[in-house]
Amino acid sequence: MARFSGKTAIITGSSNGIGRAAALLFAKDGANVTITGRNSERLEETKQQILSAGIPENKVNSVVADLTTEKGQDEVINSTVAKFGQLDILVNNAGAAVPDTQGNTGTDQNIDIYHKTFQLNLESVIRITQKAKAHLIASKGEIVNVSSIAAGPQAQPGFIYYAISKAALDQYTRSTAIDLVQHGVRVNSVSPGLVVTGFTNAMGVPDTGSKNFYDFMASHKECIPLGKSGQPDDIANIILFLADRNLSSYIVGQSIVADGGSTLVMGCQVHDMKTMLGL
C-alpha cells in the first residue's frame, strides 16, 4: 500500500518548481492532493503531469487562488475538505523574493517590497495555518513549511526582506511546533539552498540570466561545494519524509537544510550578482 494512501495534502505554490514536484510525489504515493497557485496555465501543467502519472482525476483538487487574500485561503481549505472530507498534510511552499521594480537593493529597497514579501512569505502561512488548524488536529496531521538558507546567520544584503521573512518563518515553525504538538500535530520545515526552479524568473531575471546564475553557482565550489545545483525533487523528497510520521515521528520543530554544502562555506557572498547573471 502507498504510504500516503487515505491521506489528503495541500501543497501551496504548486504551479511549478518544488511545489509541483512535491504534489506529483504525494499523488504517486497515494495521497489526495490539492494543488494551488496564481497562474492558471502553469497550475494546469502540474495537474496534467499528475494525471499523466496514472493518478485518477478525482484525487486531484486544482484551485487557482491568491493566498495573500482571505478569499484565496478560504477557497483552498474549504474546497479541499469539501472534496476529500479531511486534511492531513499542509505544505506551506508558496513564497517569493519580490523584485524591486526600481532596481534598488539593500537598505535602499522600497518599504512596499517589504510589505509584499512578508504578506506572501509569512502572513499567508500564518493565516492558512490558522484556517487549517482544526482539520489537522482532527487528523493528527503534519505541517511542512518551506524556508530557505537565506534565513541563516550569514548576511543577505541583496535580499534583505526575503531573508528576514524566511528567518521569521523559521521562528514561526519552531513556535507553532510546540503549540500544536500537544494536539498531535507536527510542524517542521526544509531550508533549500540553490534549486533550479522558476524562482529567478519570478524576480524578473530572463532565462539567459537564470541559466548563467545557476551555472556560475554550480561551477564554483565556494558557492556549492557539491558542484551542482539542486533540483525540485531533491527538496520534495525531504518534504515527503517530514510528512511521513512512520519515518520522522521524533522530529518536531526542526528545519532540514538541503543546500549541497553552501552554508558551510557561503563563498558566493564575495561574488557580484551582475557577474553571476552574466548580463
Rank of each mutant, 00 (worst) to 15 (best):
R3L: 11
F4E: 00
G6L: 10
G6T: 06
S14G: 03
G19H: 12
G19E: 08
A22P: 15
F26M: 05
F26D: 04
A31Y: 14
V33C: 05
T34Q: 04
T34I: 02
G37H: 12
N39F: 07
E44T: 12
Q48R: 15
L51F: 12
L51G: 13
G54W: 07
V64Y: 08
A65E: 05
T69H: 04
S79W: 11
T80R: 06
A82H: 05
A82R: 12
Q86D: 11
N92A: 10
P99C: 04
N104L: 14
I111L: 15
I113E: 00
I113S: 00
I113R: 00
H115N: 08
T117Y: 11
F118M: 10
E123Y: 11
I126G: 01
Q130Y: 10
A132L: 06
A134E: 14
H135G: 03
A138Y: 00
V146G: 09
V146Y: 10
G152Q: 15
A155W: 01
A155F: 03
P157D: 09
P157A: 07
Y162E: 06
Y172I: 08
R174S: 09
R174H: 11
Q182C: 00
H183C: 02
G184N: 07
R186C: 02
V187C: 05
V190N: 06
P192S: 08
V195N: 03
V195L: 00
V195W: 01
A202Y: 06
M203T: 05
P206R: 03
S210N: 01
N212Q: 05
F216P: 05
A218H: 08
S219G: 14
K221G: 10
C223W: 01
P225R: 07
P232K: 00
D233M: 09
D234T: 04
I238W: 06
A243E: 12
A243H: 10
D244V: 02
N246S: 09
V252F: 05
G253R: 09
I256H: 12
A258L: 09
D259I: 05
L264K: 07
L264G: 15
L264S: 14
C268G: 15
H271S: 07
G278N: 13
L279G: 13
